[in-house]
């Protein structure tokens, strides 16, 4: 029989914590002293992937910066549920300006810190996919191009959920949204080319670009850490399922992220200076149906008036990701 090297502690690196690991090897989230950057009492929906992803990412960045961190936030769910007057959930200096300018606001903060000689204080900008891939894209690109010292984190839930689930340029093909209803011969969102912001970020040649999901905390924390160890423009694209917008059970948020990665629908990788340096391999490859079926936004592809041809096209997208990024290991599983 072939032995795996004794690399793991019962649950390997998959669980949040592990009592058997040395303290310095534990995740930030496992710590009793984690900053809980976004505190209890926020008004995110039950099982919100974005609330979770934001805490994962910002807590990690807080840990990496020794608590010296400032965040700029785009308009969107994250902003609305965290800071309705008179209460804020944020535990770090935080500013919300507009929907489309988080990257630029962060640039301004970074400039102020630089001129004041406070470069030990680090800056993150964050927004949803709408605030990143659509309305905030100009500012984001400008921030990249100038290589401003900002880590931009996009929490991608594939649509405008705050306004009632409309399509964004991150909405996947065939998905139902309030503006791409499952009607007519091509139900749901169009099969466009999509707007792959991680790749566009890489095209800017910035120091670091990575994708991650809320299903793999250790990977996400590694990437935040890596990003925080560098200066200049950095981009982290975190996949955060939305129970409300996707029509999934609130307890399935992490499972959906896991399935997106395991089917190849969402490739998880990192890139430095525009070149992919590592990918997170698929552990147990699954057909896209496994990912699509639990989501009501894809319900029109199944059942009585099923659209197997559309599922095939979605599978082709997953297959292409798998091929392009090399998401399977040598054994091809």
């Amino acid at each position: 029989m072939s032995f795996q090297p004794v690399k793991f502690y019962q649950t390997g690196t998959f669980t949040v914590g592990n009592r058997l690991l040395a303290p310095d090897e534990r995740s930030v989230q496992a710590g009793q002293q984690r900053s809980n950057a976004i505190n209890s009492g926020h008004r995110a929906c039950q099982g919100c992937g974005e609330a979770l992803g934001a805490r994962y990412a910002i807590d990690a960045a807080m840990a990496a910066s020794g608590g010296k961190l400032i965040a700029a936030n785009a308009t969107g769910c994250l902003e609305v549920f965290s800071t309705p007057y008179p209460e804020s959930s944020w535990q770090l200096p935080w500013i919300h300006s507009l929907f489309g300018n988080a990257a630029a606001v962060a640039t301004g903060i970074a400039a102020a810190l630089k001129v004041k000689g406070k470069q030990d204080v680090r800056v993150v900008a964050q927004g949803g996919d709408g605030g990143t891939t659509d309305i905030g894209f100009g500012c984001l690109s400008g921030m990249f191009e100038r290589n401003d010292d900002v880590l931009y984190i996009c929490y991608d839930n594939q649509g405008y959920m705050n306004t009632g689930v409309q399509r964004s340029s991150a909405t996947p093909p065939a998905a139902r949204t309030a503006t791409t209803m499952p009607l007519g011969p091509e139900p749901g969102n169009v099969f466009g080319q999509g707007k792959n912001v991680p790749e566009i970020a890489m095209a800017h040649g910035i120091p670091y670009v990575a994708t991650a999901t809320v299903a793999d905390l250790r990977d996400l924390e590694y990437k935040v850490n890596k990003a925080m160890s560098l200066h200049g423009a950095r981009y982290l694209h975190v996949f955060v399922p939305c129970p409300l917008g996707w029509g999934t059970a609130s307890h399935d948020t992490i499972r959906m992220a896991r399935l997106a990665k395991e089917t190849g629908m969402f490739p998880v990788f990192e890139a430095e200076q525009g070149e992919v340096t590592s990918v997170l391999k698929i552990r147990h490859r699954l057909p896209v149906e496994e990912y699509l079926k639990p989501q009501r936004r894809f319900a029109h592809l199944f059942g009585k008036n099923a659209h197997p041809e559309i599922i095939e096209r979605l599978q082709a997208i997953a297959d292409r990701n798998i091929r392009k990024y090399g998401l399977l290991d040598e054994e091809g599983k």
Binding site: N101, A104, V105, A106, G108, I109, A110, A111, A112, K116
Partner: peptide, 8 residues
């Protein structure tokens, strides 16, 4: 906005 908010 960002730089002013950061005190510059």
């Amino acid at each position: 906005i960002g730089s002013s908010a950061a005190g510059a």
